[in-house]
């Protein structure tokens, strides 16, 4: 196989973090993310010749991330139900000491809610609420109409709010602590 071109290296350098974060927010556990990032960039390396530049490079990369993450989630559905490894992730950080058990617990709850969303809703919700992309950008990225993006966002928000309310009702003390 041809050695890595400077162009490929530049793509890797520029988009590594985007790919990593995208996979994490698409439901990939921290412990598995490196393997899947590797897989994404391998696909980029192999498929670079087929990229015709009709879409933005990020759109193309995000498409690969979605397929890899879907594959991952489908191959091991049990992972979706396991409490996430947000705790392990946080502990690697310099500010790990500052993060209490409560905040890690919150992260795992939030990931659990996202993991139970249908994937089309989850993707839109993540891109809008966490990546803070505009509806128009999401529509372009996912090749959807803006109306569909709005619909998915609404359904995802309703689901998220319903789950949070249920959690709060089940554990009013937890809600108070979270505040």
């Amino acid at each position: 196989m041809a050695p890595f071109s400077p162009e490929f290296r530049a793509i890797y350098d520029e988009h590594f973090e985007f790919v990593w974060c995208s996979l994490r927010r698409l439901g990939v556990r921290e412990a598995d993310t490196m393997d899947l990032v590797q897989k994404v960039f391998l696909a980029v390396h192999v498929g670079w010749g087929q990229f015709e530049g009709r879409s933005k490079i990020r759109t193309w990369l995000f498409g690969i991330c979605r397929r890899v993450a879907s594959d991952y989630r489908r191959s091991s559905p049990i992972r979706r139900e396991i409490v996430t490894d947000a705790a392990a992730m946080d502990l690697r950080r310099d500010d790990a000491a500052a993060l209490g058990a409560e905040s890690r617990h919150r992260a795992s709850i939030a990931e659990g809610i996202l993991n139970r969303m249908p994937e089309p809703q989850r993707v839109v919700f993540v891109l809008f609420e966490l990546e803070e992309m505009s509806g128009e950008d999401i529509a372009e990225l996912l090749n959807l109409s803006v109306g569909t993006v709005r619909s998915r966002l609404r359904l995802a928000r309703e689901r998220f709010r319903r789950e949070v309310k249920r959690l709060a009702a089940a554990d009013p003390i937890g809600r108070k602590e979270a505040v």
């Binding site: 590594f16 973090e17 990593w20 974060c21 994490r24 927010r25 993310t33 947000a86 992730m89 690697r92 950080r93 905040s103 919150r106 992260a107 709850i109 939030a110 990931e111 809610i113 996202l114 609420e129 966490l130 998220f160 709010r161 949070v164 959690l167 709060a168 809600r175 979270a178 505040v179």
Partner: peptide
């Protein structure tokens, strides 16, 4: 205004690589 929603989503923001 819902602080729990805010906190839960905020906890997911930082997923940058180690």
């Amino acid at each position: 205004e819902d602080e729990l929603e805010r906190e839960l989503l905020g906890s997911l923001r930082d997923v940058s690589p180690p």
